[in-house]
Design a protein around this nucleic acid. Structure first.
Lengths: 118, 118
DNA sequence: CATTGATATATAAGTGACTTATATATAAGA
DNA sequence: TCTTATATATAAGTCACTTATATATCAATG
């Protein structure tokens, strides 16, 4: 699926944003990202492995994420490939977060959110 | 689509949500929806006419929107096709709004939103 | 009243991020 | 050792989008 674009800032797919969000607080490997997203209630659905690994390749090519120079020392697993946000990736994540916050504010103004919903 | 989670809810494209949001406070016609989305800062970009009219057809088929029985009396234009939310469409819009609000809350917890951003 | 730009809807052709399916291999627990 | 979970990867197909084009009416200007 291809979602929109243009107007200064290229748009971001929901999966891309979910991945950026999962990496926002630290280094994670692919499978760990799936589990992180699964564990959050705000995910419409957990990504399939096919979607995730393709997205990671694409996002690495776009410079949003990168593989860290050193691997975690504790509880590592040789099969894993770790990823972390680049500076650009964090910037994009913040821009998209701001946009989504405005969207949620608009939804609240139009009474699409029940009182007290986070 | 992937139906993980106990709620087993199909996800919604960003464009679908933008359209539901634009119709949340009243009846609008296709071109008016484009202008409404353009006018909001939270839209990454305004949808092209191609994307919009195809999405409207799809959403009508899915039962999310419908054409109202009576047209507005004032400032009408014979060329226009008007749409409004169905009960199902409003429900889906509220569910998605709640999900997005949780997503924004997660983003805030991970310091992706600057202090005071709506 | 002719012309232009904005408004308004529609569809065909192509793209690419996804889904579904399959493959391979190691780690962990029973 | 057997099974399940963990872990990554890619091929094939789908479909919501993009881009382009077409048609027509409304509103404003000279």
């Amino acid at each position: 699926m291809n979602y929109i674009m243009e107007l200064s800032m290229p748009d971001m797919t929901p999966l891309t944003y979910q991945i950026l969000l999962a990496l926002a607080d630290g280094v994670r490997h692919g499978y760990g990202i799936i589990k992180e997203i699964e564990g959050r209630a705000d995910a419409a659905s957990a990504p399939s492995t096919g979607a995730l690994y393709l997205a990671l390749q694409r996002m690495q090519g776009e410079g949003l994420i990168e593989e860290p120079k050193s691997r975690p020392t504790a509880a590592d697993d040789a099969r894993r490939r770790y990823y972390q946000l680049t500076k650009k990736g964090r910037e994009r994540a913040m821009e998209e977060s701001t946009r989504l916050a405005a969207l949620v504010a608009a939804a609240r103004e139009k009474n699409l959110l029940v009182e007290g919903a986070s």
